[in-house]
Amino acid sequence: MIVQFLSSNSRFAAIKYNADKVSAGKAELMCVKNFQSLSVLDKPKPSDYRSYLRMIGALNPKVKNKQLHAVIMAKGHSYDKRQLTHIAGLWLEKMGYANNPHLIYFHNDNTNNHVHIVSVRVCKNRKSVESRYEKLRASLALHQLIGFDPVAQAEMDYSKAITYQFTTLDQFTILLKTMGYSAYIRATTLYMVRHSRSIRKVDLNVINNIIKSYKHNSVEVSALKQAIELSLKVVSGTPVRHPSFWHSYLRKNYKSDLSEAFREKLNIDIIYHTKGGDVIGFTLINHRTKRVYDGSEILDFKRLVRPLVRPEGFFQGDRIIFYDDQKRYQPNNVPNLAVKMSGGAFDSENKMARRGR
């Protein structure tokens, strides 16, 4: 579970954003607290909530960015809307917002259940809510509420990461990123960072030894290339930026129909890399064999991102069913992409069957 701070302006645009989601059937207003003067209204409008928050914010002109807009997100559906709303309420208390007017919205437009919290950074006694080390305090507060130990989790993730094979330090940091960590290096030490703080130190000598012990697997590289080539006949590898504009991490992420299919069906991550706003390459991580590849070793990047004009078939589970020339199914032509590991190499029953077999 994570907590993310969003825009902190003084217009309280978060009210309209969440109200629009409610109107579209993609969100639900779960909690309204401490809007005392609005209690006389039968059905307060979003504009009423916004005006009230702006009125409280005006009590302290020194606070420039008066809006609190935060998200608490669970993994998948591990927490339902009521559990998340309860946690959000307790989190607001720990952060000093217990007596401030606030709203909590549950959103159902994401594969991960999450709530949006909207409040004001000024108290009714004209004092501002404490904001020093806000991100760190927010994560610590959330972890206390759910009984999560980030240090223990980092230790487990590190132990898992060093079982992978890779050829560069950059590939190791990309692997850490898929686990939710950023990293920085000081002298001979890499620091794993999460929730705005350094959680674990990594001796670079350990990483360098893994790099030196890397052994090329031409059989797996060939199988991966065949799997991608085959899949590109039915899904696109053209990367699209994540549509979530409010989450700073997701905003930098690109995905494609191909990357989504590979993650779901083969437990393989395709990570697109950007430079100056352009996508310039990719890294492939095979979690089944625990190997990290520079994408250029597998397939030419231009081939990967070439637009798919006319799909030749579709996925059915972990199989691809192709059309014939009349757009009819070819039931005898169903290449199976569900691969089995044998001696560290790919081995499928039909050897990645080609179209027409």
Rank of each mutant, 00 (worst) to 15 (best):
K160T: 03
K160W: 09
K160Y: 08
A161G: 05
A161H: 07
A161C: 04
A161L: 01
A161R: 00
I162P: 07
T163S: 13
T163P: 03
Y164T: 06
Y164L: 05
Y164C: 09
Y164S: 04
Y164P: 03
Q165N: 15
F166T: 01
F166H: 02
T168Q: 07
T168P: 10
T168I: 04
L169E: 15
L169S: 00
D170S: 13
D170V: 06
D170T: 11
Q171Y: 09
Q171A: 09
Q171C: 12
Q171D: 13
F172N: 03
F172K: 01
F172D: 06
T173I: 08
T173V: 06
I174R: 14
I174S: 04
L175S: 03
L175A: 03
L175T: 00
L175P: 02
L176F: 00
T178C: 05
T178E: 05
M179Q: 14
M179Y: 05
G180Y: 01
G180P: 05
G180R: 01
G180E: 05
Y181H: 09
Y181N: 07
Y181T: 10
Y181F: 12
Y181I: 08
S182Q: 12
S182Y: 01
A183G: 02
A183P: 01
A183V: 01
Y184C: 14
Y184G: 12
Y184T: 08
Y184D: 10
Y184F: 13
Y184W: 09
Y184H: 14
I185N: 06
I185R: 06
I185M: 09
R186E: 13
R186N: 11
A187L: 11
A187M: 05
A187V: 12
T188G: 10
T188C: 08
T189S: 06
T189N: 10
L190M: 12
L190E: 00
L190G: 03
L190Q: 01
Y191C: 04
Y191D: 07
Y191K: 01
M192R: 01
R194F: 07
R194V: 09
R194N: 12
H195T: 08
H195F: 15
H195S: 15
R197T: 09
R197F: 10
S198A: 15
S198D: 14
I199R: 10
I199Y: 06
I199C: 08
R200P: 10
R200L: 15
R200M: 15
R200F: 13
